[in-house]
Design a protein around this nucleic acid. Sequence first.
RNA 1: GGCGACGUGGCCGAGUGGUUCAGGCAAGGGCCUGCAAAGCCCUGUACAUGGGUUCGAUUCCCAUCGUCGCCUCCA
Length: 453
Amino acid sequence: MLHLYDTAERSVRELNLREPGRVSIYLCGPTVYGPPHLGHGRATLVYDILRRYLEWTGLEVRLVSNITDIDDKIIDRADREGRPWEEITSKCESVWFTAMEGIDVIRPTDVPHATEWVVEMVAMIGALIERNAAYVTSDGVYLSVESVPGYGLLAHQSLDDMLAGGGDREVFGASEKRHPADFALWKLAKPGEPAWPSPWGEGRPGWHSECVVMSLGLLGDGFDLHCGGQDLRFPHHENERAQAVALGREFARHWMHNGFVVDAEGEKMSKSLGNVSNLLDLIETYDPRAYRMVLLQSHYRSPVGISGDGLDAAGRSLAGLDSFAARLADVAQRCDADTEVLAEFTAAMNDDLDTPRATALIFDTVRQSNSAIDAGDADRAGALAAAVFEMCAAVGLRLEGRSEIPDEAKALAAELDAARAAKDYPTADRIRSELQDAGWTVETTRDGTTLRR
RNA sequence: GGCGACGUGGCCGAGUGGUUCAGGCAAGGGCCUGCAAAGCCCUGUACAUGGGUUCGAUUCCCAUCGUCGCCUCCA
């Protein structure tokens, strides 16, 4: 069974499922007010790899990932551009899913929107007030973090320690807060702002409430795994947990956080630094699978540097896998995957999603399979190749093997073979360059010419 | 100031107390090929610095230097 690092316990431990055979996962999704960047791409790819792997092992995965479609940032942008906020959120959401499709991330099983869950949030906030865990001020409702046992579990810091530091930052927010770390559950609307009714006045929910209501609402108490980027660990996830604890409900049983994407200088990419790269640009410029490959070759908890050179290198390694797929697809089809290889793969993946080890295994197996086919051992080559295809599928690497070849190109390939058979090499070379110019990868072998895109 | 991560061969990026190796990309040599491509084989004596523990450290401990993250915008 899968072992994963648990941020709450600070150690790798088994992912204990609430229900055998089924995994319930909540992943904090995007706030839709701008284009998805590389950081979003990493998070979604990491959890897409996790999801595919879990499904590959035979588990039924329910992956809930929300869309935050009401937020101060959205309102700000709507104001700035003089557009309805709903226009921004719907546009950004559609761009989001276009990008996700581009990097081949499977759509979550559930995609709840914050605005669809406001009634539930209002009810939850009411319950928090009743339990004396929240209080009303002149601008909204706040959660009292001091009422929450174990606040700081994910921050790895006690409330006192958090306050002791703070660097140069302004720690205090709204003046009516009872404690600087208290956070808004409900924000009363200013004139012209989007608003929903509540017992405390028209307003909108705070950011940390939606995920509690939606995760518990869709997945139920004590769901298996809560995921997101490192930057959500605190305060977002801490505050989600705080609300659930204050309500007396069992929240996520396991917490998983992926590392950041850093730029060439080693700095985290972030919106505020302005060094983000648009995910859509990446997909246009590079093999869309290259990003997944780069991530597979590093560990999900480590920071990963994304550069053009790195993506190109990954693209070239993918080209090798593609030509392998083209070469071995047929023979693999007749074989069962080598069980030893798959066992090794599973062991690596179960060890806190050790994709670097798993990826190394894929490349090793490719080499062995190539050697076997060169040595004429088709059974061995096929079993190894079948294992390669299984492993690639399990992590979402789509290999491009045989492609559709138009008759015209087929005819040229036949001419090429004929020319070679006749030892008319000038003609053969001419046809080959012609095909290459047309975008084909041409492999001429003793057995004839194969073409790939 | 508090908490945390990290410094590995040309580049990216794993990992480990001690003989043989992560893996990818790039480079050099070879086999194969009409020539290529693809594939296969071989090659690099890497682990920030200074101490310490140890029979032995890149791996453990301490210090130093450097980089980065979180401490209510953020995947």
